[in-house]
Each structure stands twice: as structure tokens, then as C-alpha cells.
């Protein structure tokens, strides 16, 4: 009995030791892969003396789960619009002290006060873009104007789709003429059926790996975020045979944001970091490095006009108008997950 008591005591002590590991002056950042110029992290460390602990993940859903954990260690995170909406609803975000973020003035007004966070109480826009079709001009000669082309048997085995519930089901809903935020189960089931029919034509459901496969010329058509398309169609780093189009039926426009979880105990350093990222010079370097569009007007002014002329990087107003923004679906997310299980297995 004594031995068991001793054992339990040791376990408790060990758990407490793990729990108390000091955080002191370290900023814990959770980001998407390839989504910051890591040189900037070093610069931030140099300038402020704050250590950065940098981790990446591959999906919004994964990020959400990590932030929902009661003892989440992260101080900075980059979720998309609908996840910010959910995090606010669940009261998991720290209300920003805007006095610490004077560089907020650099952000273009178009990107402030968006429906998922009115007044930007909890989030600062980081990058934005659309979802569209990236195609290889040597394999696709017809104009790409509709999502229908992803269901064209001519391209069987040469199509890549995103391994992402909301993106993939969302574009199918648009193709069927429904909203990407539908809460009608019959719409989701119809999309599910369409994606099951498409499955034999799809070579693979991937994440970031789509970029490598398309640049290597292994696919004719793929779904990508506009920022990745900027990078992939680049003449030096990518493959000049690739082009990007946002279908005429419409698409998704998305905003990735910087947030601080409520559980963070280092909010001042986190706000310093947000301010740092909103600096015009820093934002310029960052957007040029990752290729995603910045909402930072001051940064755009510093950039080569070539960037603004690039319609993938800077979509014209008519493209933006036909795009819809994702909203949090609440409990209805389970219906989407269930449909997803029947599509990807």
C-alpha cells in the first residue's frame, strides 16, 4: 500500500513539474507551414530580446483544436475568418490593446471591420486571397471558367484536390449553385454525391504538397489558394506553364488573421509581435516572400508596381464581388465531417 502511495506521489510530482515548466520571456507561435519569412522571426528576436518558439500545422481545424485546449501554450496564431468567428463565440480570444499596435493604421480599411470580427476587437488581418483553379497550360487548352472542369473525364488522374473539408465541399456547393455556408443537409448530401462521382478522376487529395506536384508538371488541374498560385506561377521559383483562374460561378474569399488566445500569459509580447508584423517594411518583406496578398496598404506602396498588376496577387473588384466568405457553422460542422468521411476514405 505504501509503495502505491509513493508511486502516486511521484506521478503527481512529475505531472506538476511538467505543468509548471517556466515560460518566462518566450513567445509561442502557431502558424501554417510556409506562412512567414522565418528571417523575420530572427529579426524580431534580435530587436526585442524575446525568444520565439515557432510551430506549424496544416489545417484550420487542427489549429482550432489546439486553441480549444484549456492549457494551450500559444501566444500567437493565424486562423482564418470562420475559425476566428468560432473562437470569439467560444470566448477564447484575448481582446487586443490597440495602444500597443500603432501600426494597425497601415492596414487598408477594406480589410478592417469584417463580419467575423466587427471592430477588430480580437484580430488583425494577416493575409487574404481567393480559392481557384490552377491549371497547366500545356495540358489544358480550353479556357478555365467553371468548376465543372474538375469533373471533366478528359483530365482523369491529373486532378489534385485539397484535403480540406470546408474548401473542397465549399467549391462543390458553389458549383451546384448553393452557398458555401449552407446549413441545409440536402445541399451537403448533393455535394457529397458530386464529390464521390469525382473521386475516380482525382489523383490525390493533398495539402501544401499540391504546389510541388503542380510545379513538377504532374497535374493538369488543381484547387489552390491564390497565394500559392502566385508562388507556383512565378517564372523563377515556379513553373511558367501554370496559370490561375477564379471560376465564374464564384468562389471563396478568405482572410487569415493574427490573434492572441485568451490563455496566453504573454499578451504584451504578443501585441509587440503583431505590431511588428504590421510594420510596412516587415509586411512588404513577408508578403514578397510567401506570395500571399497583404492587407497592409503602407506595404503595398513600397512594393514594385508589378505586384499590383498581377491579378492573382491583386484580384480585380469583379472577382472579389463574386466570392463568398466562410462562416462558422456551429454544430452543423458535424454534417460536413460526416459527408467528408464518405468522400475521403
Amino acid at each position: 500500500m505504501k509503495k502505491i502511495a509513493l508511486l502516486i506521489a511521484v506521478i503527481i510530482a512529475a505531472v506538476m513539474l511538467i505543468g509548471c515548466s517556466g515560460k518566462n520571456n518566450t513567445l509561442y507561435i502557431l502558424n501554417w507551414g510556409d506562412y512567414i519569412d522565418e528571417e523575420l522571426l530572427e529579426r524580431f528576436e534580435r530587436e526585442t530580446g524575446i525568444d520565439v518558439n515557432y510551430t506549424t500545422m496544416a489545417s484550420n481545424e487542427e489549429m482550432l483544436i489546439k486553441l480549444q485546449a484549456k492549457d494551450t501554450i500559444y501566444d500567437i496564431c493565424f486562423p482564418s475568418d470562420y475559425i476566428v468567428e468560432k473562437l470569439i463565440a467560444e470566448d477564447l480570444l484575448h481582446e487586443l490593446n490597440k495602444e500597443n499596435i500603432p501600426n494597425l493604421k497601415n492596414i487598408d480599411e477594406r480589410f478592417l471591420n469584417l463580419p467575423f470580427d466587427p471592430g477588430n476587437k480580437y484580430s488583425v488581418p494577416y493575409m487574404w486571397g481567393t480559392v481557384g483553379i490552377m491549371y497547366n497550360k500545356t495540358m489544358v487548352s480550353e479556357p478555365v471558367t467553371s468548376w465543372d472542369i474538375l469533373w471533366d473525364e478528359e483530365y482523369a488522374g491529373k486532378i489534385f484536390m485539397y484535403d480540406s473539408i470546408r474548401d473542397t465541399i465549399g467549391l462543390t456547393l458553389i458549383r451546384l449553385g448553393y452557398s458555401i455556408n449552407t446549413r441545409d443537409e440536402s445541399h451537403v448530401l448533393e455535394a457529397q454525391q458530386a464529390l464521390i462521382e469525382q473521386r475516380p478522376l482525382v489523383q490525390a487529395y493533398l495539402g501544401d504538397a499540391i504546389k510541388d506536384r503542380m510545379i513538377a508538371g504532374e497535374g493538369a488541374l488543381s484547387v489552390v489558394y491564390s497565394g500559392d498560385a502566385v508562388w507556383c506561377t512565378d517564372e523563377e521559383e515556379g513553373n511558367p506553364d501554370l496559370a490561375y483562374a477564379v471560376p465564374e460561378e464564384g468562389s471563396n474569399i478568405w482572410f487569415d488573421n493574427i490573434i492572441i488566445p485568451k490563455a496566453s500569459d504573454n499578451t504584451e509580447a504578443a501585441e509587440m509581435f503583431i505590431n511588428f508584423l504590421c510594420d510596412a517594411e516587415v509586411a512588404k518583406q513577408n508578403t514578397e516572400y510567401i506570395g500571399y496578398s497583404t492587407p497592409n496598404a503602407a506595404a503595398l506602396k513600397l512594393m514594385d508596381p508589378e505586384w499590383l498588376e498581377n491579378e492573382v496577387y491583386n484580384p480585380p473588384a469583379e472577382v472579389i464581388e463574386r466570392c463568398e466568405i466562410f462562416h462558422d457553422l456551429g454544430d452543423f460542422t458535424a454534417v460536413y465531417s460526416k459527408a467528408w468521411d464518405k468522400i475521403i476514405y
Binding site: 489545417s59 481545424e61 487542427e62 482550432l64 483544436i65 480549444q68 484535403d163 473539408i165 473521386r199 482525382v202 489523383q203 490525390a204 487529395y205 493533398l206 465531417s337 468521411d341 475521403i344 476514405y345
Partner: peptide, 20 residues
């Protein structure tokens, strides 16, 4: 497998990591 040939391990990962 490109997400087309999921195994039970993948399913468990998806349920816990992305579906929560």
C-alpha cells in the same frame, strides 16, 4: 496514397486532430 487509401490510423488521426 494521396488521401485516397486511408487506413484506420488516418481515420483516428482525422477524428481527433481535425474533427475534434
Amino acid at each position: 496514397g494521396g488521401g485516397k487509401y486511408r487506413l484506420y490510423g488516418d481515420l483516428i488521426e482525422q477524428k481527433i486532430v481535425s474533427d475534434g
